[in-house]
């Protein structure tokens, strides 16, 4: 798979489809770091592991470069979804960005509890079946069962937060400036552990319709709070109610803030005389 990716990346650079390819490079002393390859011969040092999300990085690079400069990014499934979400929010210009997608293997999918471990535009590798995160035992313990018990469980987990903002910084979609989590009105600053309801629930809810389930927040968390698990129920609800999944279609906006007339929430009682919600598109 690595050779395939290298080959494709070389083609992109040789044909001048893009001016740079963003990927991981095994540099001096075998240190692996993100790198923008601009010369085809450089690409021999390209590697694919470990998992590294480039969406936010691509955004930063494109902002710095002149308008005509184009970037190709080597992406996994989750990375591609994150890029789609950023495109929706006008953070990335799709015209200037190429993706070179490769599929994760089964082990990686299992480690991430990923339900979609392959990009939609697959250039290398074979797509493997995803894992249903809600079927996992560890996840079940946090999402199902007695509410009072869960309340204590989550409280015990979130209490360990050292407020490093790692979850926010590593999230490929958290790009707001200014951030509410740094505002005294919403979250009191300088308090450790973070105020649990304000900090954690506001952060989780801001990503409710955006989360692409990449698991970066969970991996970045130094104390190991299962942060991605917190998002799963909301992702599931959006899927069930609106058939919406973040990061799949760049043209479909979040159903929470758009499509009022088209998509009434199932089970919501709407009086007969109201036609604004019942209207068929």
């Amino acid at each position: 798979m690595l050779d395939q990716v290298k080959q494709k990346a070389k083609e992109i650079l040789e044909k001048k489809e893009a001016d740079g390819v963003l990927g991981l490079r095994k540099g001096l002393f075998d240190v692996i770091h993100p790198h923008v390859f601009t010369v085809p011969s450089e690409l021999d040092a390209l590697v694919l592991e470990p998992k590294w999300l480039f969406a936010k990085m691509a955004r930063a690079i494109l902002r710095e470069k002149p308008q005509a400069w184009r970037l190709a990014v080597i992406v996994r499934g989750c990375d591609e979804r994150a890029i789609v979400e950023l495109v929706k929010r006008n953070q990335i210009d799709r015209e200037r960005l190429l993706t070179l997608g490769y599929a994760c293997d089964m082990d990686q999918a299992k480690a991430c509890l990923c339900s979609r471990p392959f990009p939609q535009k697959l250039d290398a590798g074979a797509a493997v079946e995803g894992v249903d995160p809600l079927a996992d035992e560890r996840v079940k313990a946090y999402l199902e069962g007695d509410a009072g018990k869960r309340m204590e469980m989550w409280a015990a987990q979130l209490k360990r937060c050292i407020k490093c903002y790692g979850c926010r910084n590593s999230c490929p979609i958290c790009v707001c400036v200014p951030c509410k989590l740094e505002d005294d009105v919403w979250v009191e600053r300088g308090v450790i552990p973070a105020e649990m309801i304000s900090f954690q629930i506001i952060r989780a809810f801001h990503l409710s319709d955006t989360c692409v389930a990449c698991g970066a927040c969970q991996e970045a968390c130094p104390v190991g709070i299962p942060l991605m698990t917190l998002q799963l129920s909301m992702r599931e609800a959006l899927k069930k109610d609106y058939n919406y999944e973040a990061g799949l279609d760049a043209n479909r906006k979040s159903p929470v803030l758009f499509d009022f007339a088209k998509e009434p929430r199932p089970g919501q009682a709407v009086p007969d005389w109201v036609d604004s919600m019942g209207k068929k598109p």
């Binding site: 946090y142 509410a147 869960r150 409710s208 917190l230 129920s233 609800a237």
Partner: peptide, 9 residues
Amino acid sequence: TLLDTTGIG
């Protein structure tokens, strides 16, 4: 949904 998940209700 989120409040239900965390057990706050």
